[in-house]
Amino acid sequence: MVRFKNRYALCELMFPGQPETSVESHQVYQAVKASLLDSHGDFGLAALQSSLSVKYLNIKTNIAVIRGERRHFDMLTSSLVFIRKIGGKDVVFKTLHVGGSIRSCQKFLIGHHRKNLTQIFPSCKTPEERAEGMKSIMAACDTLDWGYSVYKQTPSQPAYSALSMLQEGDGDEEKEEES
C-alpha cells in the first residue's frame, strides 16, 4: 500500500491597510477553491479538491497551512497567488514555505518567528513594550501547540512544545545581544 502523499503550503495572509482583520478557515477554503477553479478550471479543481483542506489557521498571526495532493501541488501554489479577496476583504497570500508534513511547516514557522523577534525587539524602547511583544507572540503560538499535538504520539520524540522552543530560542537571542 502506497501512502497518499501530500504537500503543505505555509502561507501568511496579509491584509493591506486593515491591520485588525481576521478570517475563518472555511472562508479561506472557499477562496482557495474559487481561485483554483478560475485559474485551472474544472480539471484543476477536480485534481485537488479531494485533498484540499485548510489544516491550520492562526487568526492572530494570520498564518495558514493549506494541504494539497503532491502531484498537482504546483497548480495549488500558482492559484494561491491569484487570491485577492477573502470574505469581502482584500488579501494577499504570501507563501512562506512548502513542506511535506505539517511538522516540517511548524519547524519552519518557529524559525520564522524567531527570526522576526530580532526585528521586533530592537524597536522596543521599554521593558514593558518588550514584554508586550513577547506576550503577543506567545499567545499566537498557543494554537501552534494544538497543531503539534497530532504528532506527539510518536514516543521516541522528546515531548517539548513549540512554546518552549521559542523561549529557548529567545534566550539564545538575548545572549547574543549581550555579547
Binding site: L37, S39, H40, G41, G44, M75, S78
Partner: peptide, 11 residues
C-alpha cells in the same frame, strides 16, 4: 472550451 476545463492557465 479550454477555459471551462483547464481554467485561465490552460486557456
Amino acid at each position: 472550451a479550454m477555459k471551462e476545463t483547464l481554467g485561465q492557465v490552460g486557456a
